[in-house]
Design a protein around this nucleic acid. Structure first.
Lengths: 200, 200
DNA sequence: ATGGTATGTGTACAATGTAAACAATTGCAC
DNA sequence: GTGCAATTGTTTACATTGTACACATACCAT
């Protein structure tokens, strides 16, 4: 239901109908519709994490193989920086790919009020066990380790990178940027990630 | 109704109740609930524009008076750059101030699917006649004119700056960043704007 | 005067969330 | 094994919402 229709479409009675039970049976499992929606939202965040991991993995794999083929041992630092940048971009593109491929799930994932403290809740984790926030966090740790993110800027950097990418996602799927061509969206994605890379 | 409760709270029957007419009278003015919501959304964008103009004006006023007092004629270019940066920051802080002060209106303003082409619709304009998009656009024009935004990066720059600020707004008001202290939010706002300034 | 347009009313129906009381099933203690 | 308590589901009921259809009224122009 969330997949097509977003959060507003996740409806208690329809859920029970699909489950083959009467409407009120739902109240044995969820306090109210809000609780159901929160549970669905958590699952959606897990799905987002899956897409992000997938993008990160593909980049890591590619980068490693290239490293293995033609490199001397001198520029390990440079490699770390290149890898860190690629990883953060993969996190961003994965996030936005999820938004574009599954707009209903994306909107459901982030349409329910939450607290930053819950960003580590395992209920929001993907198959790999990490939540979207943790995936982003790891990419920024890699930046810091590679020395391309000054320590004084590391604090809360998740929020700033996240804001940029999340904003683009929202504007694209149900904001004023909807209906842009795929190329336009690809371009905007690249440019927003450029901005984040330069600006973090 | 939008003010407290956001888009979900703008309800057709309640509106007619407050207007003192029967529910179906609404259908003489709006095709359906969606049309009503779109109209409300436009008004909300106008309110956002008002807040943004207000922030921009206060900055322009301050900057001009400083200029008038103690300057030779040499660094007009520098002044233009300083002004342009201040203006863009004011646009961003205004946008986020609106999100924080009127979260219901903010969510209503941007929760209805729209097209970029409609971003100039006068229905979305504030008292000064400009829509939020146009206000942002003007600030970026000032950047370009001051020479601090390379021409090849000017195209669609609205989208990138907007994404960053919009994302922070969404995360703060009903995303995982809700409940952050006012200082935290102020800090995050400043840092996101730093990122935009460096990254555009 | 008359006819058309704008606006509002009355009645009606389907869908939703949710409360309260009741029933069936399950698991465990004795 | 028996009985009790927790778990899960059902039935009935109600308020609220969006919306369709037919009907009424007021006003304005010809």
């Amino acid at each position: 239901m969330a997949e097509r229709g977003g959060p507003d479409a996740v409806v208690l009675r329809e859920a029970t109908r699909r489950a083959g039970v009467t409407p009120n049976a739902a109240y044995r499992h969820f306090a109210d519709r809000g609780a159901l929606l929160r549970a669905v939202s958590d699952v959606c965040q897990g799905r987002a994490a899956d897409t992000m991991e997938q993008h990160v993995d593909s980049v890591i794999g590619a980068s490693s193989s290239v490293d293995a083929v033609g490199d001397a041992a001198g520029d390990a630092v440079c490699d770390a920086a290149v890898d860190a940048r690629a990883m953060l971009r993969a996190v961003g593109t994965g996030y936005l790919a999820f938004a574009r491929d599954e707009p209903g799930l994306f909107r459901t994932a982030f349409s329910v009020p939450d607290q930053l403290a819950n960003s580590f809740d395992t209920a929001k984790a993907g198959a790999a066990g990490r939540t979207p926030f943790q995936i982003l966090s790891a990419a920024l740790d890699a930046w810091a380790a590679a020395g391309i993110l000054p320590p004084e800027r590391r604090a809360n950097a998740e929020l700033y990178a996240w804001s940029a990418v999340h904003g683009l996602g929202m504007l694209v799927i149900d904001g004023p940027l909807r209906g842009l061509s795929a190329q336009m969206i690809d371009g905007a994605t690249a440019r927003v990630l450029d901005m984040v890379e330069r600006g973090l």
